[in-house]
């Protein structure tokens, strides 16, 4: 086999390898949502975040608009802080927008759902969402249910 064919074959091999990496990165992983880093961040505090994790989706009306970037616990107010990054094109949420932690399906993963309010001012980077609803914890609901039944 002459040198030229050899070089050609090896070149094709390396190109195929890089193309495969590219394909995996583009179509089978979340590379596209990395653009979200350019979005603006808002914070919200919850009594209980349930099974929410960093990188969990943030959605409004069922459409994914951002993701959770950081979760912390505030010792002063004994509350959980959730920092979210919202994609820049969704930049007109009123400041009285409420956030709730919801579950997709009965046993699915948890996400933050935003419900727009009616004010004229919009959320900006660093804003804090004050109206929040914590995650539903199944054990507590069952416990309350049993307790109320016991009272009857």
């Amino acid at each position: 086999m002459n040198t030229r064919t050899l070089e050609l074959m090896v070149g094709l091999f390396v190109a195929a390898g890089i193309a495969a990496l590219f394909m995996l990165a583009m179509s089978a992983s979340n590379l596209s949502s990395y653009g979200g880093d350019e979005g603006y961040t808002v914070k919200a505090r919850f009594d209980n975040i349930g099974g929410l994790k960093t990188r969990s989706p943030v959605s409004a009306g069922g459409v994914r608009i951002g993701r959770v970037t950081e979760i912390g616990y505030d010792m002063a107010g004994y509350e959980a802080w959730v920092t979210m990054s919202i994609d820049p094109q969704y930049d007109a949420f009123p400041i009285d927008t409420s956030a709730s932690i919801l579950t997709s399906g009965l046993l699915g993963e948890q996400y933050v759902g935003l419900e727009p309010g009616a004010e004229d001012e919009y959320l900006a980077s660093g804003s804090v969402i004050t109206l929040t609803q914590s995650a539903l914890v199944l054990e507590q609901i069952i416990g309350q249910f049993l307790y109320s039944k016991g009272d009857e």
Partner: peptide, 15 residues
Amino acid sequence: FWSQAQENVELIDDL
């Protein structure tokens, strides 16, 4: 098929 993969696969952590 593709959107589920994109939602759940991390570029750095997995690939």
